[in-house]
Design a protein around this nucleic acid. Structure first.
Lengths: 326, 326
DNA sequence: GTGAAAGCGCTAACAT
DNA sequence: ATGTTAGCGCTTTCAC
């Protein structure tokens, strides 16, 4: 049984390098405004790596009054492939500024975001879309110095914009009777309601009747029955909550011997990898997130530095990926 | 400009409750072995919540010598839907023990896992599959008290088992010439190599020639050309890296006027939601992760408590979901 | 049962 | 330019 093998401390490094504890701190943090003899500097660096020294994060943040942890809150799946790239870019940009990104899947059973934020002592929290002011407030109280994006006063949320684009495309293509495919899984209800809202809005503004909403699961039978309902009610174009749901609708159509976009046009959302492989290739709407990773990171860094950049980056805006299903 | 509004400290609570700082700590931590007058206890709790007190995580871990943060490392997407449930369960179980779960997407550009571990001062790190001993070692040095799963001496990794099951199914169905569909995206190379390894192994053990490996992207053209190659080399069954790749192969088949499983049987992996909606419905192999969330959580709690449970839970084992594509 | 006091490892004023 | 000193907020012996 070897003794717990304590981790080396800054003190150990100082001792090994024959300098004071402070010097170690200065050297390791590249403290601006102090010039340290190259020789000394080298010795410290060497000692540090030979001891495999790692500053103790908790001690560091306690003393500095701020951690270098950034928390990203992502909604409970499914993560479109775009999100992946977004996270990668975000993590990289943040890392370049010495910040560490970790993510929290906002599952139903998980602890509330502010709790997590406090538990890991995050100094910034990033969300995919604006936090409402209550949440933002709670996060601040939980210790987050910067919360992004903070609530915007827009009538339609970025999420709702998805529905708007879907519906607009259908309307533009001449459809006058719109359907909406709601997913059966309870996990998606909140987000689905928001996307649907965008569709409802477009219908209203265009003078169309509200969309014919039908709930469908990811099984062939469910999809078939959904399609049947739309057809009976003379719907000619449907917006699906997401690509998976859209693919189910496509499968239902096919099963009934019908086909898109002739018998029923369908537009999905998220542009998952298999969307283009659907039969026919799925028209979809999605966010171009990978561009905004860097922007968000910069906003965080700026915010942490005191410069208020809360509105430094343009809001995420979805775009249409037109293929042959609609 | 309101003053920074410092967060209330334990001292503040003590003052408000008219007790000593120590008491606050005892009450809030339910310190075992000390009985505190109900009255005092109540006052402390009340003061705490009225001040909206949250213990400072960093200070806490510094003093306690251990944080309550658990880091989950997940490979860089795509997260099958099973992973989602797994994470949820894991987070919930951990939370029940006062532990907080955050996840790290092991993207190419992100910082190495040990760095992240050290930066957030995690006291445990969980992976979906065993860490090799070097990584485990690095994680320990980075401050992780428990690392799960730690390397097992198995010849075939759980990931490799995916390939094994795919190949075994094909062989069992009478196929003698196996193909393998490798994804084009560089991000998947490592994992793909491991899965492929399982297939290679089965072929060897069964006395078959090694699988005909073809790389394909998620575009129709790429898939068509891949299918062409397999057919030319008289492959009758192919294992795809994952369901997305498999769906591409299915699309390629269809485009060439062929169909599964008659002309070519294909089996995917991960059981993504749309697998069953593929044409024909995709046979696939996947892990039943949702069962092991609790197990893993328990192992962590036990490990943190000193009881060595490193081998407390059964290794993850994949299972076959048979549908009509193979 | 309660409170005083000593650090945990680090950063940042301050003094030299 | 370098070293000394005082905490950051909390846990935890140890006296009372």
């Amino acid at each position: 049984m070897t003794p717990p093998a304590k981790r080396p401390t800054g003190q150990d490094v100082a001792r090994a390098a024959g300098v004071s504890r402070t010097l170690v701190s200065f050297v390791l943090n590249d403290r601006p405004g102090v010039s340290i003899p190259e020789e000394t500097r080298r010795r410290v660096l060497e000692a540090a790596k030979s001891l495999n020294y790692r500053p103790h994060a908790s001690a560091r943040s306690l003393a500095a009054g701020r951690s270098d942890v950034v928390l990203l809150s992502v909604p409970d799946l499914p993560l479109g492939s775009g999100i992946s790239r977004f996270i990668e870019e975000l993590a990289a940009s943040l890392a370049a500024s010495g910040l560490t990104l970790v993510t929290h899947l906002a599952g139903a059973h998980g602890r509330p975001l502010p709790d997590v934020c406090a538990s890991i002592d995050a100094s910034a929290v990033i969300g995919l879309e604006p936090f409402d002011s209550d949440t933002a407030e709670a996060l601040r109280k939980a210790g987050a110095d910067v919360v992004i994006p903070s609530a915007s006063g827009d009538t339609v949320s970025p999420t709702g914009l998805i529905g708007v684009l879907q519906a607009e495309h259908l309307v533009r293509s001449g459809h006058r009777r719109i359907g909406y495919a709601l997913p059966a899984h309870p996990r998606f209800q909140t987000m689905a309601a928001e996307r649907l809202q965008g569709v409802v809005r477009v219908c209203a503004e265009t003078g169309l009747e509200p969309p014919v909403v039908v709930t469908t699961n990811l099984e062939l039978q469910g999809a078939v029955s959904a399609v049947t309902q739309w057809v009976e009610r003379s719907v000619t174009g449907v917006c699906a909550f997401n690509d998976e749901t859209a693919i189910a609708v496509l499968a239902g159509l096919r099963q009934k011997g019908l086909s898109a976009p002739t018998d029923l046009a369908v537009v999905g959302a998220d542009d998952i990898p298999t969307a283009r492989l659907a039969i026919p290739p799925l028209t979809t709407v999605c966010f171009d997130l990978h561009e905004s990773g860097k922007q968000r990171a910069e906003a965080v860094v700026a915010g942490l530095a005191g410069r208020e950049p809360a509105h430094g980056f343009p809001p995420a805006v979805p775009r249409l990926v037109q293929r042959s299903s609609a």
